[in-house]
């Protein structure tokens, strides 16, 4: 079982403190959900943990070992950004090859892929591309996967499908997921956090979502 834990994370933009008191822990076998209002710093937090953004200070640990310097090269954390993951010039088959992802598993979940496997990502609908990108990361070899709004642009059928896949695959890798479809996130998360006022709050009672101002009603 792998563990990804991060805390002591501070981020400021000028005089605006975005992240100040963060503590989150994610383990294989558990799906960790992260909720937060627009502009609360969720994407920044995820990019810092992934390693592509620098914070004033941070402590990120993988199986107890502190990750320092350019740990992106260790390929511990796969990251699905809010925007497109695939560059426009990459074909779907190239993406599968480079990520060493399991094609049969992707094809099982997305049978249509046969029709556009050799096409560039820019030539396919946004929903199909998004679903493929999520599957690509799920079936790649990273022990942890951070997904920023994976459900955006997906049809309800594919949202449900992706939720089932995440539940099936969480025994093999750890997932941190954020999305504005809070009901979906709440229903699949084993651990749920809310990011508010630059701090993470572990949710043990749904009433906390009201207290933190994330929801107006349950």
């Amino acid at each position: 079982m792998n563990t990804l834990e991060f805390d002591s994370l501070y981020l400021e933009f000028g005089f605006n403190r975005v992240l100040s008191s963060i503590h989150m822990k994610c383990t294989t076998g558990k799906l960790t959900g992260l909720l937060g209002r627009n502009g609360s710093g969720k994407s920044c937090l995820m990019r810092i943990v992934q390693g592509s953004m620098k914070a004033e200070s941070s402590s990120i640990r993988f199986n107890g070992k502190t990750l320092q310097g350019n740990y992106i090269k260790e390929q511990i954390i796969g990251y699905l950004p809010q925007d497109n993951l695939l560059p426009a010039f990459i074909t779907f088959s190239q993406a599968i090859d480079l990520y060493s992802a399991d094609y049969r598993k992707i094809e099982k979940q997305l049978p249509d892929i046969k029709n556009f496997i050799d096409r560039k990502s820019s030539e396919v609908s946004g929903g199909q591309r998004r679903f493929f990108e999520a599957l690509l990361l799920i079936y790649s070899n990273h022990p942890f996967c951070i997904m920023d709004e994976p459900f955006s642009g997906l049809t309800p059928v594919n949202v449900e499908k992706l939720m089932v896949i995440l539940q099936e695959e969480k025994s093999k890798k750890g997932f941190i997921i954020t999305d504005h479809l809070h009901r979906s996130i709440r229903s699949i998360s084993d651990d749920l956090y809310v990011l508010a006022h630059g701090k993470t709050y572990k949710i043990t009672d749904e009433e906390q979502l009201l207290e933190l101002g994330y929801l107006n009603e349950l």
Partner: peptide, 18 residues
């Protein structure tokens, strides 16, 4: 304008500098 697409390469173990 295009550096947001670097996440694809970050996942392959290549930093933005790389």
């Amino acid at each position: 304008f295009r550096s947001k697409q670097f996440f694809f390469f970050n996942n392959l173990g290549y930093s933005n500098a790389a």
